[in-house]
Computed example of a mutant assay.
Amino acid sequence: PLTVQDKEHNHQVGSQRVMVEHIIREMKIFKIMAYPYRNRRKRFGLKVNLIAAIYNLEL
């Protein structure tokens, strides 16, 4: 059986995980995270950062 503190901790972790999963879903809409990346690996971080910036502008 879980204590009240354990339940509260699980609730907080679950809330954060849901937010991250929603962001990953939004990034998959741009297709960079949905398929295997086949271009230069040096540019992968740049492209992910650009898409993350575009997503943050929408918020």
Rank of each mutant, 00 (worst) to 15 (best):
H22P: 03
H22W: 04
I24S: 10
I32A: 04
V4A: 07
R25F: 04
E21Q: 03
V18Q: 12
K31Q: 08
D6R: 13
V18T: 15
Y37T: 03
G45M: 08
K47L: 08
L46F: 11
V18F: 08
P36F: 00
I24D: 09
N10C: 15
E58N: 12
S15V: 05
Y55M: 02
S15K: 13
M27C: 03
K7R: 13
Q16V: 01
Q16M: 05
L46P: 04
R40A: 09
G14E: 11
G45N: 03
Q12T: 15
I54P: 02
L57D: 14
N56C: 01
M27H: 02
E21C: 08
F30W: 06
Y35L: 11
G45D: 06
V20Q: 07
I54E: 13
E8H: 05
L57W: 10
K42V: 07
I29L: 02
M19V: 13
E58Y: 09
Q5F: 00
Q16W: 01
K42N: 11
V18G: 13
R41T: 08
V18E: 13
Q12I: 14
L57E: 09
A52C: 09
G45F: 01
F30A: 03
R41S: 14
D6C: 06
K47C: 03
H22V: 05
I51K: 08
V4Y: 09
E21N: 06
V48K: 05
I23E: 07
K7M: 12
A34W: 00
G14K: 05
M19W: 02
I51F: 03
L59D: 10
I54C: 06
K28P: 00
R43P: 00
V18S: 15
A52E: 04
L46C: 04
V18K: 14
A53R: 07
G14T: 05
K31D: 15
G14A: 13
I24Y: 09
E8N: 08
N56Q: 15
A52F: 03
V20I: 07
V20G: 10
Q16D: 10
E26T: 04
A52S: 14
V13T: 12
A53F: 12
S15R: 06
M27V: 00
P36Q: 06
K28E: 09
R43F: 03
A52D: 09
H22S: 12
P36R: 02
T3K: 11
A34I: 01
I23M: 02
V18L: 13
L2N: 14
G45P: 03
V4I: 04
L59C: 05
I24F: 02
S15M: 11
A53V: 03
N10D: 15
Q12D: 07
M27E: 09
P36Y: 00
I24V: 11
K28T: 01
V20T: 08
A53W: 08
K7S: 15
I24W: 05
I32Y: 00
R17E: 15
M33N: 07
N49W: 00
L46H: 09
Y37F: 00
I54Y: 12
R17C: 12
D6H: 03
Y55V: 00
A52K: 10
G45R: 10
H9W: 00
V13R: 15
E8Q: 12
L46M: 05
I51E: 12
H11R: 10
V20E: 11
M33F: 00
N56M: 07
I54D: 14
Q5N: 13
S15D: 10
K7G: 15
